[in-house]
């Protein structure tokens, strides 16, 4: 055992154990770490936003390079502060409306390309897939899976008649997908825990290399 002599490592280990103590129950150590974490991260965000967003994207082009067009984003940004002035607080809707409109405009074509066209293309049965029996079989399974899942998410009809068994098949496909995803994601979570334990047992206590 060769514990670290770096006080920052000890502090990090202490805060890690404070957070881990939540596994037992809520306690003062967890509350301390939680509030410290929230406060530090919120403060860090302010500094980060200034250095990465406001200064390079607004102050430099507007006040140093003299690009007048940047008054528009400045005016939009200032609208957020009207929430503190009841008489003008309706103006906060301007940047929000712009953001929502811009967000939808950017998201919809990208969504259409990625989630509809690409997925449809990848699902279609092509002759080449049947050059081997197994790839042909999987291509058919994928097509059936997509069709039954689409039927599952059809809200305009009651689930009865022919829709019911197809939708039930869709649920099976969805759950199979979730099962695979669950296992894959749990592995990733375990690796996070391992990383933290390595810090405690290695960098802090020096028990493992």
């Amino acid at each position: 055992m060769n514990p670290s002599t770096d006080p920052w490592v000890w502090l990090a280990a202490f805060l890690t154990l404070c957070i881990f103590s939540f596994l037992y129950k809520d306690n003062i150590l967890y509350r301390f770490a939680e509030h410290l974490f929230v406060g530090v991260s919120a403060g860090y965000l302010v500094a980060l936003t200034w250095h990465n967003q406001i200064y390079p994207n607004l102050i430099v082009p507007l006040f140093i390079e003299g690009n007048i067009l940047y008054i528009i984003p400045l005016a939009f940004a200032l609208c957020y502060f009207t929430r503190f002035v009841p008489r003008f607080n309706h103006m906060i809707r301007l940047p929000i409306a712009f953001l929502l409109g811009w967000g939808s405009g950017v998201a919809i074509p990208a969504f259409f390309q990625r989630d509809i066209l690409r997925q449809t293309q990848g699902t279609l049965l092509v002759r080449e897939a049947f050059s081997k029996w197994d790839s042909g079989l999987w291509a058919i399974v994928i097509l059936i899976g997509v069709i039954s899942t689409l039927i599952y998410f059809f809200f305009s009809r009651e689930r009865k008649g022919v829709i019911k068994p197809v939708a039930n098949l869709g649920v099976i496909f969805i759950m199979l997908g979730f099962g695979a995803s669950f296992g894959y994601t749990v592995m990733a979570r375990i690796s996070l825990l391992i990383g933290r334990l390595q810090f405690l047992l290695g960098e802090w206590l020096g028990i493992i290399q």
């Binding site: 957070i19 809520d26 939680e34 974490f37 929230v38 530090v40 991260s41 919120a42 965000l45």
Partner: peptide
């Protein structure tokens, strides 16, 4: 508003849930 940090936010919401 809590914080933009993912895990600080999670810690705070968990704290809210138990308190």
């Amino acid at each position: 508003f809590l914080t933009q940090n993912q895990w600080a936010y999670t810690a705070a919401v968990c704290g809210t849930m138990v308190r």
